[in-house]
Amino acid sequence: MKLKQWVQDWFAAWQASHAGSYRTAQSYQGLLQNTILPRLGRYELTELTPPRLKRFFAGLPGGKAKNTYKLLRTILQQGVTAGLLAENPCTPEILGEEALARRKAGPQREQPVFTRAEQEKLLAVCEEELWGNLIRFAFSTGLPQGELLALREEDVDLAASRLTVRNRVARIADEQSKEHKTRLALLPIQPYSVPLPAACKRIVESQLRALRTLQAVDARCNPDHLLFATPDGRPVEANVLREHLALLERRAGVPCLTFSAIRETAIRQALEDGGTDAEVMERLHCKDRQAFLRRYRQK
């Protein structure tokens, strides 16, 4: 089978299982149509040898080579699973020695970690209760942005002090729109449960009171019973959140305020507070123990 045909089959299957990943699909299509298929699409899968792929990647700039490598390796690995290839020819070595060294070295930039004083500075400049509650909740739980913004009333068990994460907020293609518009939606994920820190109970109670007040005025607002929603009951947009985080950065004089940095802070703070590896991994839903130990316990 030629790569072009296998890519069509793979991409159709990928889209069927990732209906909400509109922007990722666009990115994949761009790499496939503009980079991969023009030069490699005519070859049989078995003709994609490491030397041929190495020559292909040698002609790509660094940033594009990295993204193309990830996508092509995934596609060819599925070919191995399907029995079309004996082994995946897209190995790290084909990127060249310099790129391989960068890959083995890991990320070039560590995520910033905020001190408790910096966290309090950020919270002190939150002029609206929603943003103060959201930021404090994020520092306490370390939840990823999309999953935190998708939390609903039913996901919280105050009596048991547990959170069950079932969804993430994502922007997907609006099938009813003829102009290829998108909309926000809650997409299901593999559910997982984590402890609800004691400090977050008051936040949940505050957000639920705000929800009750809102729905007393208009029962149609916030139909999903989201814990963190806009004043008119809609999910928080990622770009709106970024704007508020940037505003808080400037007000507090604390740079690099992102949810990735908040999660990094939550993990390191939990370890500094004496949490065992098992406790911190369970609380912050860190699934890969070996990766966790390499990142946080290596000397």
Rank of each mutant, 00 (worst) to 15 (best):
K54F: 01
R55N: 07
F56S: 08
F57K: 02
G59V: 07
L60A: 08
P61F: 04
G62S: 14
G63F: 09
K64R: 15
K66L: 06
T68I: 02
T68N: 02
Y69Q: 04
L71F: 07
L71Q: 04
I75W: 03
I75Y: 05
L76N: 09
Q78C: 07
V80C: 11
A82V: 07
A82M: 08
G83A: 04
L85S: 09
N88R: 08
P89G: 12
C90G: 10
E93P: 00
G96D: 07
E97V: 15
E98H: 08
L100C: 08
L100P: 00
A101Y: 05
R102I: 01
A105F: 03
G106I: 10
P107Y: 12
P107R: 14
Q108H: 03
P112M: 06
A117F: 09
Q119Y: 02
L122D: 01
L130A: 03
I135S: 06
F137N: 03
A138K: 03
F139C: 04
S140T: 06
S140H: 04
G142C: 05
P144W: 13
P144H: 15
E147F: 00
L149Y: 05
L149M: 06
A150R: 01
A150S: 00
L151D: 05
R152Y: 03
E153G: 07
E154V: 13
V156W: 10
L158S: 10
L158P: 02
S161N: 14
R168V: 08
A170M: 15
R171F: 12
I172D: 03
D174C: 07
R183D: 02
R183M: 14
Q190F: 04
P191S: 02
S193Y: 00
S193L: 02
S193Q: 13
L196Q: 14
